[in-house]
Design a protein around this nucleic acid. Structure first.
Lengths: 339, 339
DNA sequence: CCAGGGTATTGCCACGTTGAAATCAACGAT
DNA sequence: ATCGTTGATTTCAACGTGGCAATACCCTGG
């Protein structure tokens, strides 16, 4: 059996030209019913499948979009990736996933390397690289940024309102009567817009409640894993900050903080209330369950792909950059329950 | 600026033929240093990138491999996918990820649809479809099966020794003096080999300890999420099985079971010891931390890709199917600590 | 000054597909 | 009977690359 058959093989078998077979496959032109039947029969018999490489070469499009995220094993990104893959299938796109592992080099390679030629578009959650650099390197590849601060109209962007969401989360802790509200998750060493925005909202809520933000309450992290949250929480306690509440910039950090709280014999939420960000599944089954800011991930996925589709299928190269804000809501669970 | 430049454009600029540029790019033939310099210069100036579609068409290979897993947001698969993507980059392959969402239809579509033409090979963790069907549908695409029972030499397979691992986990619980050891995670309705194998090991360990396996102790689940584990645990308790230990076939199920135990006021490990399977990161930070069977995921990734590489780059189509067993170890943590 | 042998470079073609335009057949209207 | 029209099918060319074989070039030894 041949490894693969081509239009020509099918055409020979059906007694028509290759072009007619192409028409049957794509429905791009009218084909007589009888001819269509014969061709279809030949297709089935030979098990013909169109060669996508040839099709791409001809069309100048690959039907492949890239998704660049820092880490696939991070629950938030994994959930989001899952939704994006599903949504992409709905548009008959294939998704290639690239992990940047938080490296600026990886983010740049992705854009200047072969990636730029194989993908029709890219959805990226930037980490180390400023948004400006990304959009510059990517051109003319359509790019959608997730979460990052808006790059002044250089590329489409989809995100929750990080400032408002962080503000709400902090205000929620304050509404419980907590006054020493710490924050875990700053990343001053990185040009990471998301962390900056959440810190901004956190401080705004404190100020509105008449509390001056204190550097000692703001714990930086190098990465966003549970272990980083656990370490930051330990440092916070060791430094004698005596927080009665913690707002972690991600659920993973929050779960790490919970872990340390348990170790140190602190009761959650009685001694320390904890709020996270992302609404990953783990938080619904942790002990205690985790209060969190829940971004509408389904909408992030849908909107991001819509943006790409608009650019890929539109002949116009000067579409104004979209800056879409998707809804979020605060989900109150055990870790910040009223005591 | 041109959207993309071709060999021809570079050739024109450097004053050589397209073929010479191709030689410079691929190093496939000797090129005079001076010529190489001029060509490289032109490449840089034009920002030339090879067109992968054309290259694939010519070479008959795409450099893309598929990874089909039930769910991306499942921590185990997300971690594994991350490792596979990293390992694939090392071999300059790109990975497209497909989620079957546990559907037989999705698994079949993947193989018979366009996927089969765009991928050079496929790594699949089968769920609903018997391994035999998968390998039959895939031919002549090289396939590596993860975890599934060996399909009688039809395709390469990489997995831990599920029977032995489940046996060890159960034996560990028995060694703590537990006698009513329940199992959570059977999937009798699916043709899922992995669950069957783990049940086999579980029962073997019981029998060796002189305990007859009881159907009432074996709780089936429909999926492998935390919520399924939580439900199964609740059913187990409601049925009056009064287990003093639980072996869950995955960490997610185990974490769900922990959640229910907390809710019901059971102390872990004092009242019920719990062991999971997979060693996902969550288990290292849960409360209590989770005892689990830790498969060497790095080796699973490396070996699976090695198998694919062997088949893709080998002209021989009759390589015997490999059946590789990767090491695992039992990691004892809080959920089964000695009381 | 030329044959011989290597090195460097080139032209041509095919991979499988599809857009554009040409061809062919059939049919109704003039 | 002829022409125009519509519908169905075909021919031709090109997308960008790399294998193959041919060619142009240079140097050395006779």
């Amino acid at each position: 059996m041949r490894v693969s058959s081509s239009l020509k093989d099918v055409a020979a078998r059906a007694g028509v030209s290759a072009r007619t077979v192409s028409n049957v496959v794509n429905g791009s032109a009218r084909v007589a019913p009888e001819t269509r039947r014969r061709v279809q029969e030949a297709i089935d018999e030979l098990g013909y499948r169109p060669n996508l490489a040839a099709r791409s070469l001809r069309a100048g499009r690959t039907g492949i979009i890239g998704l660049a995220i820092p880490e696939l094993h991070s629950p938030y990104f994994a959930e989001l990736a899952g939704l994006l893959v599903d949504e992409a299938r709905r548009r008959s796109w294939t998704v290639v996933i690239d992990q940047t592992r938080g490296g600026a080099e990886a983010e740049r390679r992705l854009l200047t390397g072969d990636g730029g030629r194989v993908m029709d578009g890219l959805i990226i959650s930037p980490w180390a690289l400023p948004a400006e650099d990304i959009t510059a390197a990517a051109r003319p590849l359509p790019v959608v940024l997730l979460g990052e601060r808006s790059p002044h109209g250089l590329a489409d962007r989809v995100a929750v309102d990080n400032v408002a969401a962080a503000d709400e989360a902090t205000a929620h802790l304050l509404s419980l009567g907590r006054r020493r509200v710490a924050a875990i998750g700053l990343q001053p060493h990185l040009r990471n817009g998301t962390a900056e925005l959440r810190a901004e909202g956190y401080r705004a809520a404190l100020r509105r409640a008449g509390i001056a933000p204190r550097p000692a309450w703001e714990r930086p992290v190098t990465a966003l894993h549970r272990s980083d949250g656990a370490r930051a929480m330990a440092e916070l306690l060791d430094a004698g900050a005596e927080p009665d509440a913690v707002f972690a910039f991600s659920d993973e950090l929050a779960l790490g903080a919970l872990h340390t709280a348990h170790e140190r014999g602190l009761r959650v939420p009685q001694d320390v209330a904890v709020v996270g960000f992302d609404d990953i599944e783990d938080g619904r089954f942790s002990h205690p369950t985790l209060t969190t800011v829940s971004p509408d991930k389904g909408q992030i996925a849908a909107r991001a792909l819509q943006c790409l589709a608009d650019r890929i299928y539109s002949p116009r190269h000067d579409l104004p950059a979209a800056d879409l804000t998707v809804p979020h809501r605060l989900v109150v669970r055990g870790s910040s329950a009223t005591v």
